[in-house]
Amino acid sequence: MSTQPRLILDSKSFGLTINRLCCQLIENHNDFKQSAIIGLQPRGIFLAQRIHKLIAEKTGNKNIPCGNLDITFYRDDFRRGEQHLAKPTEIDFVIEDKKVILVDDVLFTGRTIRAGLDAMMAFGRPQLVELLVLIDRRYSRHLPIMPNYVGKTVDTISTEKVSVEWKETDGEDKVLLFQK
């Protein structure tokens, strides 16, 4: 039995939330001279690109490095769960000594972020790493991982699913909660 998905963020509050996240980033990173944005494949890259574009508009700095990182080869459930296929990793800048903002759409168990941190270290040693997520599913962490910037915190149970939809790929900006 499945019920109608619940709308967590509509397109208007979606825009406002991303706007606020960008303002918070600008507060901490000033001119972004030493900063870089990395979106996690597959769904974090849309948020990373959106934020990258908005910060460029707000600060006038069009040269902030922005890349995509795939974590498939670093997963901790290889040969344990279903098989995942790798998507492209595109990091064409040096992350050594950068302040890296790791971006994903939904923070759930924290395992993806753990894998992302490991994957990122193959490219160098950043000065510091921050985590930005659009949705934080509170009380569901398997690992001690805490985001620095959160769009919206939601309370969910593990059988539920949070889906972030994007104008570019899904037609409309919104966040939905599905019950199983």
């Binding site: 498939t72 080869f73 670093y74 290889f78 296929l85 790798a86 998507k87 492209p88 193959a122 490219f123």
Partner: peptide
């Protein structure tokens, strides 16, 4: 096609500063 699509990603891996991933460690 599946092998090619993953080989594309591994080609990127072997051009990284650290050319190693932990996938088959067990």
């Amino acid at each position: 096609e599946l092998i090619f699509s993953q080989a594309d990603q591994f080609k990127e891996v072997i051009n990284r500063p650290i050319k190693k991933v932990p996938s088959l460690r067990d």
